[in-house]
Design a protein around this nucleic acid. Structure first.
Length: 471
DNA sequence: TTTTGAGTTGTTCGA
DNA sequence: GTCGAACAACTCAAA
């Protein structure tokens, strides 16, 4: 396996007392750019900005290239908007406010530089390819203006470059990664950054230029969106749930999972505090947080996994990709109660229980032989807590194509899964009430036949590859 | 350098 | 009903 390592550009400066290029008749300010860290508490980059000795202009940009393709009532946009509004309220109480813009980040920031005497821009780093490219370009722009760009590692606990094998290369197997990760974590990194205590350094709202004050914070409709009707899971950390996580997490009817993914994804909950609690209360729960870091690390070092199998051999699988069957899967009409229950939960709530994510993903890739990329894209569209690295890692794990993936002959039996993890049919009945009746749709494929077909197709693809490589 | 043990979440078959 | 082995072979990680 050839490592496809892309160059890393870091701007980790602690020295904020540099010589700024500022406009003559104005006091220089610094900008804090919120992205996926939508909270005022324990926000590392914000903390550093507030400690810079300058007034801080808090900024959020609705990135057109991200939100334009989304449907008008996208629940994630509503969630972001709501989170911004809540931060804005707190900032108002401190005499400031949040500046909201819609556009292309590079252009918005270029414009900002002409409106404000910006001395430096602060933000927390992004681990995804798009965000890294965006920040690289912004860094270039700021550099051209002699403006410093201070970025901090906040979204994840450990930077991918901190958890490496002894030979300096990244891990590809979870368990040793996890062991090393825990080892390193013990030596710190959970420090609290009390950004919320420093809000007096926020720029007073009256000194923000603009035609009208109200234009600083536009309505959701002005941004081209309407409110989503879906419910937002609470960001509250439920300690009892975390204590019981290893016992209850596999039973979807038990609601034994935290549903905090969405808050980690948008940063409405800080990872440091959660990891601290997890480390104290439940090893298995902590393990899930480490999986999140593991897949982020994989995406960091192997960005090609976004559209390629981590194990190239798996890109030779002859997917059937039947559109009708894909539609039946999406709508939760496969005739397999466990699969349909999961898909309907996703469609109706924007969430799917982890156990069901595996069952439905295994069914799509192995029973229906539909390309994992199709399923991944559908989850990306629907999941409230969608995060590229975790979603991609999970799908490639299920399809067998990922690093440290499930062996391809491990094909979930939807009925065994139901019997084991929903023994009273509680979850299934909730989402597929007609499952027992004659109205229920017939099985789209017979399990045994589909299983054998999958084993054949996978085997053929993998043999073909090893032959081609001359063994 | 070589060796060795191990690797998220499962299923099926036959004794 | 229960239990262990087979399923496939490979690559990783560390000693």
């Amino acid at each position: 396996m050839v490592s496809r390592i892309i160059p890393v550009v870091l701007f980790l400066h602690d020295n904020t007392q540099s010589d700024p290029v500022v406009k003559a008749n104005n006091n220089p300010i610094v900008v804090f750019w919120f992205r996926r860290d939508l909270r005022l508490e324990d926000n590392k980059g914000l903390y550093q900005a507030l400690k810079s000795g300058r007034k801080v202009l808090p900024l959020f940009i609705f990135d057109e290239s991200v939100i334009d393709p989304l449907p008008g009532n996208d629940h994630r946009v509503s969630f972001i908007y709501q989170s911004l509004a809540s931060m804005d309220e707190s900032l108002q109480n401190n005499g400031g406010g949040l500046l909201i813009k819609r556009g292309k980040p590079l252009e918005v920031i270029r414009e900002l530089l002409s409106d404000y005497p910006v001395e430096a821009v602060y933000c927390n780093m992004d681990h995804e390819p798009y965000g890294r490219k965006r920040d690289y370009e912004v860094a270039g722009l700021l550099n051209d203006h002699g403006i410093r760009f201070h970025t901090f590692w906040d979204h994840l606990l450990l930077h991918p470059e901190k958890v490496l094998k002894q030979d300096g290369t990244p891990y590809q197997v979870f368990t040793p990664y996890s062991n090393r990760w825990k080892q390193i974590l013990q030596s710190g990194d959970l420090e609290y950054h009390a950004s919320e205590k420093l809000l007096k350094h926020i720029m007073p709202e009256q000194s923000m230029p603009g035609p009208e004050q109200s234009s600083l914070f536009p309505d959701l409709t002005e941004l081209g969106f309407t409110w989503s009707s879906l419910k937002t899971p609470s960001p509250k950390i439920d300690k009892d749930l975390i204590r019981a996580y290893d016992r209850l997490r596999d039973f979807p009817a038990a609601e034994g999972t935290s549903k905090l993914g969405v808050h980690l994804r948008f940063g409405t909950l800080g990872i440091r505090n959660l990891a601290k609690i997890a480390a104290e209360l439940n090893e298995v729960f902590l393990g899930e947080l480490i999986w999140r870091e593991f897949y982020a690390m994989i995406l960091w070092y192997y960005p090609a996994v976004v559209d390629q199998a981590f194990k190239p051999a798996y890109d030779r699988i002859e997917w059937r990709n039947n559109e009708k069957e894909f539609l039946a899967w999406k709508e939760g009409n496969t005739g397999y109660p466990m699969v349909d229950a999961g898909m309907r939960q996703l469609n109706q709530t924007g969430y799917m229980h982890n156990r069901l994510r595996m069952v439905t993903a295994s069914f799509l890739t192995k029973h229906l032989l539909i390309d994992w990329r199709w399923g991944e894209a559908y989850f990306a569209e629907k999941l409230f807590d969608y995060e590229l690295s975790s979603n991609n890692g999970g799908w490639q794990w299920c399809a067998g194509s990922g690093c440290d993936a499930a062996p391809y002959f491990r094909i979930f039996n939807p009925y065994s899964q139901q019997k084991k993890f929903d023994p009273q049919d509680e979850f299934v009945k909730k989402w597929v009430p007609e499952a027992d009746s004659e109205d229920y749709v017939r099985e789209i494929v017979a399990h045994k036949k589909a299983r054998e077909r999958c084993l054949q197709v996978y085997k053929r693809a993998l043999e073909a590859t090893s032959n081609k490589n001359g063994q």
